[in-house]
Nucleic acid binder design. Sequence first.
DNA 1: TTGTACGCGTTATCAT
DNA 2: ATGATAACGCGTACAA
Lengths: 348, 348
Amino acid sequence: MNRKITLKQIAKELDVSISTVSKALKDSPEISDDTKQKIQAFAKLYNYKPNNIALSLKNRKTNTIGIIIPEIVHHFFSKVIRGVELVANQRGYNVIIGLSNESFSKEVINMEMLANGSIDGFIISISKETQQLQDYHHLTATINQGMPIVMFDRVVSEIECDKVIVNDFNGAKNAVEKLIENGCKSIALITTKDYVSVGKLRTQGYIDALSEHNLTLESNLMLKMDDTLDYEEHLDLLESEITQLFKSNQKIDGVFAVNELYALSAMKVARKLGLSVPEDLQVIGFTDGVLSKHATPGLTTVSQHAQQMGEKAAHLLIDKLESENTDQEEEYQTVVITTDLVERESTK
Amino acid sequence: MNRKITLKQIAKELDVSISTVSKALKDSPEISDDTKQKIQAFAKLYNYKPNNIALSLKNRKTNTIGIIIPEIVHHFFSKVIRGVELVANQRGYNVIIGLSNESFSKEVINMEMLANGSIDGFIISISKETQQLQDYHHLTATINQGMPIVMFDRVVSEIECDKVIVNDFNGAKNAVEKLIENGCKSIALITTKDYVSVGKLRTQGYIDALSEHNLTLESNLMLKMDDTLDYEEHLDLLESEITQLFKSNQKIDGVFAVNELYALSAMKVARKLGLSVPEDLQVIGFTDGVLSKHATPGLTTVSQHAQQMGEKAAHLLIDKLESENTDQEEEYQTVVITTDLVERESTK
DNA sequence: TTGTACGCGTTATCAT
DNA sequence: ATGATAACGCGTACAA
């Protein structure tokens, strides 16, 4: 068991001072070639590596970024993490994760835990509960401590910081316009309750698309699901509500859903009711998931480019961290990632 | 901008010594109630929290565990992470992630980066490339440094450490036996090349099940895919190979696949060839993914309980970390998580 | 050319 | 009851 070796131990072993060792290891011209060689050889032999914690303490910089997300078992978020990790690694940073599990208190606790020196900055997408409570004191507190934050996807206008979002409004609008172009006359919307920021924007895109094409907005074509239930419960309720929706509005020939699960459920219910997709009913979902690709028929989706969002968020954060010498110019930017419509078999 | 306050600053502000502040904040009986109150109130006001990095340095303990995985955009691994994070948080630890992206060198670099003081121990599932190269020096080096490792899923017998695995052999065997019970006479296997440890074990389970039930093992019913290609390429090749398999062996009435993608592809190809599942062909896949549940028909699977694996791995690691006072009794355990057969519509 | 001293923030031990 | 000091591991300004 060869515990990690320290400068001190090398110094003692070679009978020189600690600073001599330190300098020798970074090839300082102050040290004679002789001793340099001796020390470097010894260090190599014992595989010396400086201790990160000591460096962090000394430099007041951990080279670690924290990412706080509501859920990790979710394609969108895991892709974002991949993007963050990719860029972080390239630029010499580590990534530490905190899961809020959609809970406000876990989000707060997690952030406080990490903010006490463990990391240099946050990348965060807030929990549903936080969005409902509209309590952002933990975010402002963190920012006030001089720790930069980058928010992504679920973003809050009250907080001043860098943000990375998707053009939810336009993405949704384009999707609905696609349905209209494809001949749909009666398009249903399946969305979440309004407090979820992204759901709201996508709903607005749907509304605008309809009105711009002179289609009347019918409130009974808009299904708003409560997504605070657990998965199974949610799924059951979802299917019964969609069944209800289709049965009481037989003219429906298009569906726009704000996420993958809703879109898939719509297709499933359609099949049960004997409607064929895309002939009788065309479906588009907003998502970056795997299910769409493997569904039958393949689901046409609005792709969110999650990994790209993660990459951009990481760049923004690290840029801020590494320019923090020149403070005062508190210029925050909001980067909008453009969505793409990925056409599969659920549309004509 | 209220930067984080330190003991030193409090001491200066209240005109006492640093150690007085430190003691007062932990309610030491050495300090008079008067000063304690004063100091505690002040600390509360400025929201004092001890700096984690300083504590880590002093205690030589970071209370952080590192998890190294090949890929995060994968249901199995993200569920494992969720399990690890859950337990880690409960027990006062943070989690830092490193992605190897199935590359040996990235795995090594990541581990070295974290091993220099950033974390107390590792939870790891090694990359395919590492399995191929059979180079485990980074693992032994880490262990020799006194840093505990827990391996999960993709495990190596040459390395002595705690391990968490799934009963790949039995899970596969049970699945194939299920097919046999359901009347299948000619069961195909879709698996990976042999160097992937889990694929090997599952293949062995298939072989044993057949031989125990006196079914002859036919090598042309065993399709071994090379999974080092990229996703799209892999998928295309997969489908053509499966098509080939089905066409040249028309008697096939059952398929056991070592992962979700292979099973789904089998169903897809079957549909194209006009075979109906489960009437003409029954399919079971080894997986913990989302696709199975939402496939049509729903795919019967061998569930791996990924989250439970993560939880167990975290407990093992933390147990070891917190008992390390009493060394010498180097007792390592291998925990086997039992798989379940989740029956859906792809079997009778 | 090498070594000493200090500081990063904290706690524990040992004075006063 | 309070304070000074050392130590965790490192780097660097300054002294020898």
